[in-house]
Nucleic acid binder design. Structure first.
Lengths: 328, 328
DNA sequence: CTGTTAGCGCATTCAT
DNA sequence: ATGAATGCGCTAACAG
C-alpha cells in the first residue's frame, strides 16, 4: 500500500502538503491540490487509519455496550447505531457485556488503549463515579448512567399508561403487570405508569405485580403461577414483548383464549410481535430511531458541536393487534 | 496514561528491555524482569494498542461479515464469534453487509487500513477472484467463498433428509418444500436433500418447490398461494425456521390445524422456534459451535498454526416438537 | 502557500 | 543481557 511519502514524491511536494490536502486544513494552492490529488489517484492511495490514530489520539471508532445481541431489542438498536456510525465514517465495536461489571470494566480498559472516541451504553452496571471519571464522550440508551451523560429513551411511563388505559377501556376488570428487573429504570417507569391508573381501583393489590427479568422463559412460569392464584385476571400489561409472549404462551398451554378471556399488551414493538399468532398488541417504541439519535448525539459530542438537550424522550405509540379486543 | 518510556525510566532500563519483557521475547535477566514488572505495576502501565499495531502491522482485531444482525441465526453466530475472539484477546468488528457487494467492498477497504487481521464471512457476494486477491486470513461460515478458504457449515443435505424422512414416516403423503434463495449454497443443499427422498415418489412435482428469501413475510404469502393450488399438501419442509414460522402463520390464518392436518419442519434451531405455539419442529444446527469453530480456525490461520482440515461439517439433529406428529 | 522536523508509543535490528 | 537508534505512517507546529 502506498504511503503519504510516495504521494509526496510523485506530486513533488512535501508530506506536509499532502497531509494538508488530505485533511483540507491550512492553505494550499489550487494547482498543488490538483497535483496531489492526481498522485493519490494514480497510486490508489488512501491514508492509514492506524498511523492517523496514533498521531491524533483518536480512532474514529466508538463502542456500543449492550447486554446481549441475541435480544431482539438490542439487535435492532445495534443495527441502527452501526448504520449511522458507518454513515459518518465511524466504525463501531459491539460489546456484549452480559450485564457483568467485570466484563464492562475489561472492555473499557482495552478500548481505551485503542483510542476509542466514545461509548453508547445500553448496558450499564457501573457506578456513577466510575462512569464520570472515564473522561470519554458517552451517551446512554434506555439507561441512566449519570446525570452528566445524555440519555435517549422513550416515554416509558406514558407508554405504560397508554397500554393500561386501553385494557381498562376494553373491558378488563383485573389487570396484572409482569414487570422487568427491579431497580432497572425503564422497568420502574413502566410499572409506575401502570400504578398511575390502577392503584386506586378496588380490585388492585400489589400481588398483581410480578417481578421478571425481561426474558420469555421465566415469564411462562410466572404467568402460570399467578393465574393459578388469580384465575380471574383478564388483562395483562407486560414490561416488554418477550414477557408478553411468554404470558401468551402460558395462556395457550392453559387453553385460555386470547384475547377473549385475557387481553395482553407488551412493550417494545420488536419484530417478534408480528411473528407470533395471534400477533401481539404492544407499545411501540422507535427502536431504530433511538439508536440513530444516540449515535448522532455521540458524534456531536465527539466533534464538540453544540448540544441541544440532554435527555431525549421519544414518542411511543400503542399498536393494537391480535391480543386485545379493540374496536375496529 | 503511562508509556513504555515512563516504565523504562522508573525501572532504570531502556525501552527495548521493557519491550522485551512485555513480549517475553529475547533474553533479559530475571532481576531486570522483576524491576520492570514492578515499575509497570506501579505506573499501572498497559501497552498502547494503536502504537503496537502501527509497528507490527497487525491490530489483533478481526471482522465478521453478516447480512443482517437482526436475523436470529446471525446474532447467535455473532455472539459466539465475539465471545471466543474476546477470549483470545482479539476484538471483533461486526459488519452488516445487507448482502450488498458495494457495502462489502467498502468495509473491506476501510478495514484494511486498520490492519485488520482476518475475516469471517457469513455473507459473501464477492467473486472468488476478489476474495483470493485479498491476501488476508479468512474463513467462511455457511457460505463458500473460494476453494482456498476454510468453511464451516452443518450437514445441510443430511439434515434435510432427516426432516423429510420424518415427515414421510409420520404419514405425510404430499410434502412441499419452501426453499431459500436460488444459488445460495446452503439452500441448494437442503433442497437437494429433499429431492433425494421424494423425487421418485408418485405424487412429486417440481411445483411443490417454491423459492423464497429466507424471510418470514414472503413465506406467509407463498404458503397461501401454494395451498390454494394444492390443498392436499400435508407436510412442509422449510429451508429455514423463519420460513417455517411463516408457513405456520399461514396455516393458522387458514384454520388448518398443525400438526393434525399439516406437519411442518424448519431448519436452524433458532430460539424463535421455541417461542411460537405450537413450538416448531426443526433441524437443529449447532449455531454457537459453528461460530466458535470459525473463530478458532481463523485465529489458527492468523497465528500460522497448522491447520487440520479445510471444510468442517458439523452434526445436525432433528428435533421434533409441536408441529409434527411424532410418536412419543 | 509550502517544506522541515519533531513527535505519537512501540518493536526491532545492530552493536556492545 | 542490554542499550541506541531507526522505522511504522501520519499530523502539527514552526519556519520560511
Amino acid at each position: 500500500m502506498a504511503t503519504i511519502r510516495d504521494v509526496a514524491k510523485l506530486a513533488e511536494v512535501s508530506v506536509a502538503t499532502v497531509s494538508r490536502v488530505l485533511n483540507r486544513k491550512g492553505y494550499v494552492h489550487a494547482d498543488t491540490v490538483q497535483r496531489v490529488n492526481d498522485a493519490m489517484k494514480l497510486l490508489n492511495y488512501t491514508p492509514n487509519d492506524i498511523a492517523r490514530s496514533l498521531s491524533k489520539k483518536s480512532s474514529k471508532t466508538i463502542a456500543l455496550f449492550i447486554p446481549d445481541i441475541t435480544n431482539p431489542f438490542f439487535n435492532e438498536l445495534a443495527l441502527a447505531v452501526e448504520k449511522t456510525m458507518q454513515k459518518y465514517q465511524y466504525t463501531t465495536i459491539l460489546c456484549n457485556t452480559n450485564d457483568s461489571p467485570k466484563l464492562e470494566r475489561q472492555y473499557i480498559q482495552s478500548l481505551k488503549h485503542k483510542y476509542i472516541d466514545g461509548f453508547i451504553m445500553a448496558s450499564n452496571t457501573l457506578s456513577v463515579e466510575e462512569i464520570e471519571q472515564l473522561q470519554i464522550p458517552m451517551v446512554s440508551v434506555d439507561r441512566i448512567s449519570s446525570p452528566a451523560v445524555p440519555t435517549v429513551s422513550s416515554q416509558n411511563r406514558k407508554g405504560a399508561r397508554l397500554a393500561v388505559e386501553a385494557l381498562l377501556n376494553q373491558g378488563c376488570t383485573k389487570i396484572a403487570h409482569f414487570r422487568g428487573p427491579k431497580g432497572l429504570w425503564i422497568a420502574d417507569e413502566r410499572c409506575q405508569g401502570y400504578l398511575d391508573l390502577v392503584e386506586e381501583l378496588p380490585w388492585f393489590t400489589t400481588k398483581l405485580i410480578v417481578d421478571g427479568n425481561f426474558q420469555l422463559k421465566g415469564a411462562v412460569e410466572a404467568a402460570n403461577q399467578l393465574f393459578d392464584k388469580y384465575p380471574d385476571i383478564d388483562g395483562v400489561f407486560a414490561g416488554n414483548d418477550l414477557i408478553a409472549i411468554g404470558v401468551l404462551r402460558a395462556m395457550q398451554e392453559r387453553s385460555i383464549h386470547v384475547p377473549d378471556q385475557v387481553q395482553i399488551i407488551g412493550y417494545d414493538g420488536i419484530p417478534l410481535t408480528e411473528m407470533v399468532y395471534p400477533e401481539l398488541s404492544t407499545v411501540l417504541q422507535p427502536i431504530y430511531e433511538m439508536g440513530e439519535l444516540a449515535a448522532q448525539i455521540l458524534i456531536n459530542k465527539i466533534e464538540q458541536e453544540p448540544l441541544v438537550a440532554t435527555h431525549h424522550q421519544l414518542e411511543v405509540k400503542l399498536v393494537q393487534r391480535g391480543t386485545t379486543r379493540h374496536k375496529h
